[in-house]
Design a protein around this nucleic acid. Structure first.
Lengths: 194, 194
DNA sequence: TAACCTTCTTAATCAAGATTAAGTTTTTTG
DNA sequence: CAAAAAACTTAATCTTGATTAAGAAGGTTA
C-alpha cells in the first residue's frame, strides 16, 4: 500500500501494534503532486506534515531580489515542512514545491497532535527524527561557514549521489549557495568526468 | 536549587509528578566551568547532555586553517551538544567551551535513555525542544544563504541583544561568518551609536 | 607594575564569487 | 513538430569579504 514506506520508516525506531497502525493509517491522506506544483508558500501557516513517497520535493526561500535559496530536497522517505511555521503556527517564510511528479502523504497537524496523545510512542519517533535532522543542519551550517563553494559542491555530491543526477544544475547552485553562472564555470574548470 | 531553571523549562511543555521530578533530579550533576574550559572536543563521543544554568557556553568547529566557526552560543536555559555525535555515538566535529565562568547541569546519555523508558513524557519534552531548535537552524541557514554580512550582523543583534554586549567582537564574527577584520571595518563604517 | 596576551583597528592588496549580458543548448508544451 | 521556455555556458567587469601585516589598546597575571 501507499503507506508502506512510512510504516517501514517508523518501524526502524519504534514498534506499533496492529491497532496503533490502523489509528495512524486512518489519518493519512495520499496526494499526487505535479512537477512545480506548490504545496506551501511564504505567509501560509503550516497545517500538515508532508512525507514523500515518490518523486522529490524541495523547500526554499525567495530573497528580496527574487533569487531562490534551497533549504532542503526531500526524496522518498523524507519529511518536509516549514518547521518554524508548523511549530509556532505562525506565517512561514518558505516555499515547498515538487521537483518531479511526486506522491506524498499528508497528516494534518490537528490529527498528529491527537496521535501524540493516543500513541505516545510516536513522540519518540518524531523526537528521534527531529534530532537526526538537527544534527544534519548543524553539519550543513558548519560547512557553509567553513568551506569553499567547491568543497560544498563536493559534499553535496557525496551526500546525495542519487539527487545530483536528475537535478538541474541551477538547483544544486541554489542549495550550495552560489549563482548558477559560478557553478557552471567551476564545473567546466575541473572537468572531472566526460 | 541549582536545578530550578531546568525544572521550570521542562514545566513549560509537560508536567511531571513529584516522583518523576525526583527520578530526574537523581540523575543530574552540577558542574562549574571556568572561562575557556573545554567540555568537548573534536573526536570525542558525546556521553552527556549539557544544560546551562549560568554564564555562557559555545560550540564551534576549527577548520583546516585553524579558524574557529561558532555554531551556537548557550546562555542560561539552553542546551548544547554535538548532536551528531550524541545521536549516532560517533566521533564529533565540534568543540564546546565556556565563554564565561559558568554552571551547567550534566545528564549522562545512558541515564537519559533510561529516563525515556521510565518517564515517556520526557520524549515529548525533548521532541518539542528538538523541533524548536530545528526551526531555528533552518532560519539561520536561510539567512546564511541569502543575506549579506551586514544583514546577518543585524539579525544577530536583534535575536541575541543580551549576548552582543559582553561577547568579544571576534566571536560575533566567527558566528556570523566573517573575519574579525572585516567586522571591525564594517562597524566603523556605519558607526550606528557612540 | 611590568610583561604578556588577546582583542581591536587600519590599510593595502588579493581572490572568491556576483553581476551583467549575450549566445547556445535542452526541455517542455501547445 | 514548432515555438517557447528553461537551463547552461562564456566572458568581461565589479563587489564583498579574505589575507597580510602593522600597530594600538585593553585585560590578565606574575
Amino acid at each position: 500500500m501507499y503507506y508502506d514506506l512510512l510504516l517501514k520508516s517508523i518501524a526502524k525506531h519504534i514498534s506499533l501494534t496492529e491497532e496503533e497502525e490502523q489509528m495512524l493509517i486512518a489519518v493519512l491522506a495520499l496526494k499526487k503532486v505535479k512537477k512545480k506544483q506548490l504545496l506551501f508558500q511564504e505567509g501560509d501557516i503550516a497545517k500538515q506534515a508532508i512525507f514523500v513517497i515518490s518523486g522529490c520535493l524541495r523547500s526554499y526561500s525567495i530573497d528580496k531580489n527574487g533569487f531562490e535559496h534551497i533549504l532542503q530536497f526531500a526524496p522518498p522517505g523524507w519529511w518536509i515542512s516549514d518547521m518554524q511555521s508548523m511549530v509556532k503556527q505562525e506565517p512561514g517564510i518558505l516555499y515547498i514545491d515538487a521537483v518531479d511528479d511526486s506522491e506524498v502523504i499528508l497528516i494534518q497537524k490537528t490529527d498528529l497532535d491527537k496521535l501524540y496523545r493516543d500513541i505516545p510512542k510516536l513522540e519518540r519517533f518524531f523526537r528521534i527524527l527531529a534530532e537526526n535532522s538537527l544534527a544534519t543542519y548543524q553539519h550543513r551550517l558548519i560547512d557553509n561557514l567553513s568551506l569553499s563553494a567547491a568543497e560544498r559542491y563536493g559534499n553535496f555530491c557525496k551526500r546525495y549521489p542519487s539527487l545530483i543526477e536528475n537535478l538541474p544544475q541551477k538547483q544544486v547552485a541554489a542549495y550550495i549557495g552560489v549563482t548558477p553562472e559560478f557553478l557552471s564555470k567551476m564545473l567546466n574548470k575541473i572537468p572531472a568526468k566526460k
